[in-house]
Design a protein around this nucleic acid. Structure first.
Lengths: 219, 219
DNA sequence: CCAAGTAGGTACCGTACGGTACGGTTCGTG
DNA sequence: CACGAACCGTACCGTACGGTACCTACTTGG
């Protein structure tokens, strides 16, 4: 065995295949559709194997989260020189990616699952989800706005606060509404533009033109 | 019987008592703890009465939402003359109230319930929750920022967009995190201040001092 | 004082789940 | 070839839920 495989889940291909089916079931039918019998049937495996591999239903859920997270590797952005324009573009790209991720089928289903469980398992799944799913995107955004500050393009005292401001401007109540079953935005890109413009108005060092303050047309 | 009781749920005191117990069970143990047998035991009533009153488990859940919503009547704010200071204060009050409501036990439990059900009932509960719970607070905020605009204290093209900006600045990802089981903010008032300051920087007509741009210390 | 409606208590039914056990089959390995 | 491990399919068990039926006790109104 290799000494250091990080905290890689390290599932076998067969297990990954089963986890993929599990995600499919979850997305299609929600919590109730993800039964051990149903999964065994859908994935052409035996329940005994499920319990051998994942130990428990909760273990299966945790494995699903880990599996999904392992697919969404965040690509480290090169440390290129930041200009006002490239910062703006990177922020918009981040915003679009964030909206894209949050409105994804699997993300919504997993969040619903974790939220549903949070009342009875002491939010173990919720912690897992935040750890695996959010830390990556948090890191990316923090690195970006930090670079912006070092390049003299952004100004703020508290990076964490600034990031949460950015997040709020991008997402607003959209995530919860989607979790409750409402459809997503018609135009993610438009929302991303507006959010980044507002963020730069608040924290940018360059005077943004009044154009950025004009918000028009809605969801 | 009185002719017009609006769309008041109009439950008997006994039924309200039972619904109160149902909410308590839901808050304490989540979805799984709210069983018909458990509720009948906790509320000292019979399962048969439950089904006679609410028809169905889903009917019970809907009744719980209606019951809870009927408790949180939003008080219509008087149409007093708005100054920059009073607008600021009203916005901060709104922000604090919003954070207060969202972090309430019952609100979180009901949102978790609706989110958990949203995959299987076509988001019927979710719609109900948004209708009953959110419309009130939305109305209040829209009326407020609309007054602000008419008084020349705020500027924006799209009131809905401006409101969502305000909402995002206040709540950010806090709601989802709390739904996932994380504790709330230490200091709601501080968050409310920061959000309102940022909102006024974006949409206020008066030049806010640089002080309002300085974000310090975090969650 | 009694009839009728209302509500509580309990037993029951069908179902479906999580979890386990067992026999048969494939596959890698010495 | 033979052995054992892994795995599949299925049958099974205990439990707990939603929902129903039945019976009793209390109130209410004439």
């Amino acid at each position: 065995m290799i000494a250091d495989a990080s905290q890689m889940p390290d599932f076998t291909p067969r297990q990954n295949e089963v986890l993929e089916q599990a995600l499919r079931l979850l997305v299609e039918g929600g919590d109730k559709a993800l039964t051990t019998s149903g999964l065994a049937r859908a994935a052409n495996c035996s329940k005994e194997s499920l319990y051998k591999w994942f130990g428990d239903r909760d273990g299966l859920l945790a494995a699903m989260i880990a599996h999904q997270a392992s697919k969404v590797r965040t690509f480290e952005r090169g440390k290129e020189r930041l200009t006002a324009e490239s910062l703006h573009d990177h922020l918009e790209l981040f915003a679009r990616d964030l909206l894209e991720v949050l409105s994804g089928d699997v993300s919504l289903a997993l969040n619903r699952l974790a939220i549903g469980q949070s009342s009875r398992d002491g939010s173990k799944l919720g912690k897992l989800l935040v750890e695996h799913g959010r830390r990556q995107i948090d890191r990316r955004a923090m690195a970006l706005i930090d670079s912006g500050k070092r390049a003299g393009l952004l100004r703020f005292d508290d990076a964490d606060g600034a990031y949460h401001t950015l997040y709020g401007l991008i997402v607003s109540d959209l995530h919860v509404r989607m979790l409750l079953g409402e459809p997503g935005l018609k135009d993610n890109a438009r929302q991303a533009e507006k959010a980044v413009a507002a963020f730069l108005t608040l924290h940018g060092t360059r005077q943004e033109s009044g154009e950025t303050l004009r918000f028009s047309s809605g969801r």
